[in-house]
């Protein structure tokens, strides 16, 4: 399936979305940093828990800091020269401020705009243990980009997101916290619930988005509100298994991941996110995208 944006393409979500609200983040973030600062001290005295130990539900954000988990962020890029430095800066800032162990895996599909050159400069700043460059020879698709990235990932959790800044790293601590509190297999960002929201869409876009999502929810009954979103946190082995069982491409791929997850009885949580339509570069959605979306949806309806 063709990718949503034609000129400066990122592997996007179906840029049709719907109603979302603002994040009430000022409050929760301050609560978060309070909890963290307390916890760092707590954890200096506590012993190490094994890597695969899953935490029991907590009432606080208390194992955000000092935890033993490592988070690998997969960033498939194609012509993201302008976006990549900023998104990596934001990621590093978020992870450092929350004391989260991380690595960023940049999977560049031989972008003609020199994305890889910029990525190399960033690697010099942040270090080779934080930024891993795993380029590929050409545009080979989103599913294989994730497979490629996972092979090199050393974290036990994987974040997938768009590199075009439509997904903001500030939501990651909350996604991690939700994952840990319920030991979830998947946490997905949703633009359609709670304080979620979208910026930069006109009425037509909103109608298409809501219509597409309604159609998908009626046909597939997936149990999650944002099927086509692509800002998600997975347990590494869960992501591997889902990718291995998925057959679709493009944003239908993101839908299929959720539908298959339900099929395998994985637990899924949702965190409201704001989605700011790409700042640099074009984001196009034409009739072709709608047609291929409908085709992909129908295939899933029949297959899963």
């Amino acid at each position: 399936m063709p990718l949503p944006s034609t000129t400066t393409t990122s592997y996007g979500e179906f840029n049709s979305s719907s109603s979302i609200r603002t994040p009430s983040f000022s409050r929760s973030e301050s609560a978060l940093s309070d909890a963290i600062s307390i916890d760092i001290q707590d954890d200096t005295t506590s012993s190490f828990t094994p890597l695969l130990h899953h935490h029991q539900p907590h009432q606080h954000f208390n194992n955000m800091a000092g935890q033993n988990h490592k988070y690998s962020v997969l960033l498939p890029t194609y012509n993201e020269r302008e976006n990549l430095p900023v998104i990596i800066w934001l990621l590093a800032k978020t992870f450092q401020e929350n004391n989260i162990d991380y690595e960023i895996i940049v999977i560049d599909d031989n972008s003609p705009d020199g994305t890889l050159e910029v990525a190399k400069q960033l690697q010099k700043i942040y270090g080779e243990s934080r930024i891993l460059l795993r380029p590929r020879a050409g545009k080979l698709g989103l599913g294989t980009a994730y497979v490629h990235g996972i092979q090199h990932a050393t974290g036990d959790f994987i974040f997938i997101m768009d590199a075009d800044m439509s997904h903001h790293p500030k939501f990651m601590p909350e996604m991690i916290q939700l994952q840990q509190s319920k030991n979830l297999d998947i946490v997905t960002g949703t633009r359609y619930a709670g304080n979620g929201g979208v910026y930069g869409w006109d009425l037509k876009r909103k109608v298409i988005s809501r219509g597409a999502n309604f159609l998908a929810s009626v046909l597939l009954r997936p149990g999650v509100s944002d099927l086509t979103g692509s800002f998600r946190l997975y347990k590494k082995e869960v992501l591997s298994q889902l990718i291995a069982s998925c057959i679709s491409k493009g944003y239908v791929f993101q839908m299929e991941m959720m539908v298959r997850a339900r099929q395998f009885n994985y637990s899924i949580g949702e965190v409201p996110i704001t989605f700011v339509d790409r700042v640099f570069g074009d984001s196009k959605m034409g009739a072709m995208e709608i047609v291929s979306y409908a085709q992909g949806l129908f295939k899933l309806f029949v297959a899963v």
Binding site: I20, G197, V198
Partner: peptide, 24 residues
Amino acid sequence: YHVLTFRDCPEAYNELQVQISQAQ
């Protein structure tokens, strides 16, 4: 209903703009 209650989030956009220039 969901289109009508669709919330734009200009504050997310504004925050991002500030952070982009900081990052750059």
